[in-house]
Simulated assay, not measured.
Amino acid sequence: MGGSESTESTVQAKPPSQEFDKEWRDTPWEKKELLEENLRELKLGDSNVKYIRILLAGEVGAGKSSFINSINSVFQGRITTEALADSGFGRSFTKTYRTYYIRNGQSVLPFVFNDIMGLESEESQGVHPEDIAKSLEGLLKEGHNFNPAVSDKNVDYRSETRPEDLTYCLVYVIAADKVSMMNEEVFKKIRYIRENASSLGE
């Protein structure tokens, strides 16, 4: 039109992203049975330690209880729901300090998990960070009732601890789909817990 020669513009489509073309980490799935067998046959070198105690910490609804159920299900060879979980509850479903034993048939494996109340951003909600610090030292008794607003109820704390009461491994459970939305106050509590855990190794 108007003496000008019309040209056909072509839009070249961008090639698809290659970000998901490969796994983000190498997972040796072919060694799954070997790993499971090694854990079943795990022997502790210290006769004073009966169990390796693993403490799970994380925000409300992150999946701490579900993680315990998944581990137990692997060794039981069936779906188990010993640790009750409710991701839609809004507040922490776990109210007490409880030890979960991982069974291998009729026997118990030499590592246990402790589930605790979830972290929340509000000061008076969720597990008190000081309670987590005390659990790392083995001072929380089985069945300790978490009170978000109070952390000095000495009646629930041990005065002496045995080696098997101590926490040997602290695991943070974080929901991958919510990590970008986590409240800064929750991160502050996590940093406080990490500092306490680090000081125990000094």
Rank of each mutant, 00 (worst) to 15 (best):
G63W: 06
G63D: 03
G63T: 08
G63P: 01
K64L: 00
S65E: 08
S65W: 09
S65Q: 13
S65N: 10
S65K: 14
S66M: 13
S66H: 06
S66Y: 00
F67G: 03
F67M: 09
I68F: 05
I68G: 00
I68N: 06
I68T: 05
I68A: 02
S70P: 04
S70R: 09
S70M: 09
S70I: 00
S70E: 08
I71L: 07
I71N: 06
I71F: 12
I71Q: 09
N72F: 00
N72Q: 13
S73C: 08
S73D: 03
V74A: 04
V74D: 05
V74R: 15
V74P: 09
F75M: 02
Q76A: 08
Q76M: 10
Q76N: 12
Q76L: 03
Q76V: 02
G77V: 05
G77C: 13
R78F: 00
R78I: 04
I79S: 14
T80Y: 01
T80H: 04
T81H: 06
T81G: 14
T81R: 11
T81E: 12
E82V: 15
A83G: 08
A83N: 08
A83F: 09
L84A: 08
L84D: 12
L84W: 03
L84Q: 12
L84M: 14
L84Y: 09
A85R: 10
A85I: 13
D86H: 09
S87E: 04
S87R: 07
S87T: 13
S87K: 11
G88M: 08
G88A: 09
F89T: 06
F89M: 05
G90R: 11
G90M: 05
G90D: 06
R91E: 12
R91S: 08
S92M: 06
S92L: 10
S92N: 04
F93H: 12
F93C: 06
F93R: 06
F93S: 10
T94Q: 10
T94A: 14
T94H: 11
T94M: 04
K95Y: 06
K95I: 05
K95W: 02
T96C: 14
T96R: 06
T96Y: 12
T96M: 13
